[in-house]
Amino acid sequence: MLPLRLALPVPILFCAGVHAAEYNFQTPVTSVARSIYDLHTLLLYITITIVVIVFGVMFYAIIRHRKTAGRTAKQFHENTTVEIVWTAIPLLILVGMAWPATQAVLAQKSTRGEDMTVKVTGYQWKWQYDYLDEGVAFMSHLTTPRDGTLKTAGGPYLLEVDEALVVPTGKKVRLILTANDVIHSWWVPALGVKQDAIPGYVRDTWFKVDTPGIYRGQCAELCGKDHGFMPIVVDARTPEEYQKWLAAKKVAAAARVEDPNKVWKLPELMARGEKVYLQNCVACHQVNGGGVPGAFPALAGSKITTTDKPGHIDIVLNGSRKNAAMAAWGKQLSDTELAAVISYGRNAWGNNTGDIVQPKEIKAARGGKV
Rank of each mutant, 00 (worst) to 15 (best):
R174W: 03
M116I: 14
L44C: 11
V370I: 12
H40M: 13
V82F: 09
T178A: 06
K194L: 12
V357W: 01
V263H: 05
W245H: 02
K244R: 10
K172G: 09
Q128G: 02
L222I: 11
A247T: 08
L175E: 06
G224E: 02
A73C: 05
R5D: 07
M270K: 08
T143D: 00
I198H: 14
P28R: 12
H65R: 12
D235W: 02
D162Y: 01
A254Q: 09
E274W: 00
N261S: 10
T307L: 06
K67R: 13
I63F: 12
A298K: 05
L8P: 13
W187T: 11
V251Y: 03
A197F: 15
P212V: 00
K369E: 07
V136M: 08
M230H: 15
E78Y: 15
V263N: 04
F76M: 10
E361D: 10
E221P: 08
F25S: 13
L191D: 10
N318E: 02
L92H: 04
I198E: 06
F207D: 11
A324V: 10
H184S: 07
D226Q: 04
Y37V: 09
N323G: 05
F207C: 09
N347E: 01
V173F: 08
P145G: 04
C15L: 03
T306C: 09
Q218E: 07
W187G: 04
K126C: 03
K74P: 11
K262Q: 02
K119Q: 06
T80R: 10
L2H: 10
V29S: 12
M58W: 12
G354Y: 09
K262S: 02
K275C: 01
G148H: 10
P297D: 10
G135S: 06
Y60P: 13
T111G: 11
E83K: 15
R5V: 03
D235L: 05
Y277L: 04
G96R: 03
H227P: 04
I356M: 01
P90F: 00
P297I: 03
K360D: 00
W206N: 07
L91M: 07
L6T: 15
L94C: 13
N288G: 07
Y201N: 14
N347R: 00
